[in-house]
Design a protein around this nucleic acid. Structure first.
Lengths: 250, 250
DNA sequence: CGGAGTTTTGATAGACCTCAATGACTGTGG
DNA sequence: CCACAGTCATTGAGGTCTATCAAAACTCCG
């Protein structure tokens, strides 16, 4: 399969063959990490940048009372903050939700890459602007939608994002996340996530089995979520070689 | 008073006299805009970048049901997305909460500035990383804290940020925001904001009068908010010439 | 087969919302 | 300077959504 980082960046910007090669070059020394491990922890001095090649990760933060808020999902092809090393310490952690293949990129590599290749610099800016857009939409989601719509919106987002890196089959995608973690992402308890998910199944919107979700009624899912994919700033159809992204064409 | 943009950037990075002069240069042609106007609206093709010299603005988004979510406050010295012009359309609006003095900076100016002045490029990256950090903290705030803590946290954040651009006097700051707008920022109704604010006054944490807030008990305010200012990534004390920022030293 | 983590279900409580009305404040025009 | 309208703040009553607590069923893995 194509490098998911390149698939993702191609959703927004045309990259020449040499730019693509330079990005491939970055990914030569990947390593596997286990679910539950942190790639970076709150308080760390960030030095290098991480790129996720397979598996899921999340940004999260613990509160004093032991509660946890998940603030973003990182999917294959996602770069973790191309320029974090500018900050003195991490204000949150990045942990793995599943086993994952990751690349650790030294900051020097990022800096020379962006110095020498303006299209890549632009693509990295695009990537961080999109991350911000996603974060804003999550804020809207938690701030203004009820539990049912929140969950629906999350499913819509994940579907589109996974689609663009070629990780959906038919109307199905893998969701390596417990209901507790869904709750921590949506500002809900796991119990409530469970009830809402049950209702969503009863109403025929989705089916879930063994860590995977099947979208049964994408139109209604969009409808109840009030989903508008513009905040993802994807300009073209999913990774070449993939079938078109139905939900994306609404 | 010193240029608030420079005050703000100096909180993180040393800028040489020539860099500071280049930034001053940007601010020569400011203009006044009225409260309620949009600087940029959702759907616009972003071309230029805005800098706020005085007054408050906010990022916001309307939902289909007419509800509104405010996703960030922009204070004097804040730059609105140094690189938005990379995106094809705005996914949210930026509106003025008060009358404001703003500078419209053409993207070419941004690009040459960052090309020629690495420290400024770095400062701009820092600025967008901090914006993201703030956004994440807002997500935590809405996702995991109750109404009382949410409001307290917002006050703590505003106090620190305003302090760093020299806009606090004693323990007081101007808050040109209605309770309705506070509600739209915190995922609450204005009615509930009112009740919570009343309780906060009764308990002696803050006093409010005519669009201004006085912090009466900063320690307890931090306490109930669970406030930890590290997400603001401010490295040094507030703008030179200002008295020290008490709340900042906890 | 046992055990830990996860999902599911029920009952109860509480935080926050909705609707509605009153009171305070601000700016405007006579 | 006062009357007036409009916005904003305040207060009350009742309803709903979601949390909490607790226990049972299920799944996965060693």
């Amino acid at each position: 399969m194509q490098n998911p980082l390149i698939s993702k960046l191609l959703s927004c910007i045309d990259l020449g063959a040499d730019d693509r090669a330079a990005l491939e070059e970055l990914c030569t020394s990947s390593m596997w990490r286990d679910a539950g491990e942190d790639l970076i922890s709150e308080g760390d001095q960030p030095s290098d940048v991480f790129l996720l090649l397979s598996g899921w990760a999340c940004r999260y933060k613990y509160l004093r009372d032991g509660g946890r808020q998940i603030m973003a999902y990182l999917l294959p092809g996602d770069l973790c903050d191309t320029h974090v090393f500018i900050l003195k310490t991490m204000d949150h952690s990045i942990g793995l939700l599943s086993n994952a293949e990751v690349v650790r990129i030294p900051k020097e590599a990022i800096l020379t890459l962006t110095d020498e290749r303006p299209d890549i610099a632009k693509a990295f800016w695009w990537s961080t602007l999109v991350d911000e857009g996603v974060l804003r939409e999550w804020l809207v989601n938690i701030g203004k939608r009820d539990a049912y719509a929140r969950l629906a919106h999350l499913f819509c987002e994940l579907w589109v994002r996974l689609c663009h890196v070629g990780l959906t089959r038919d109307d199905q995608f893998t969701l390596p996340v417990t209901q507790e973690q869904l709750g921590d992402s949506l500002g809900l308890t796991s119990v409530h996530v469970n009830r809402v998910l049950g209702r969503m199944r009863n109403e025929g919107l989705v089916a879930t089995r063994a860590r995977s979700v099947t979208i049964l009624n994408g139109d209604r899912l969009h409808e109840v979520a009030g989903f508008n994919p513009n905040y993802l700033h994807l300009l073209r159809n999913p990774a070449s070689g993939q079938r078109a992204c139905e939900l994306d064409n609404l």
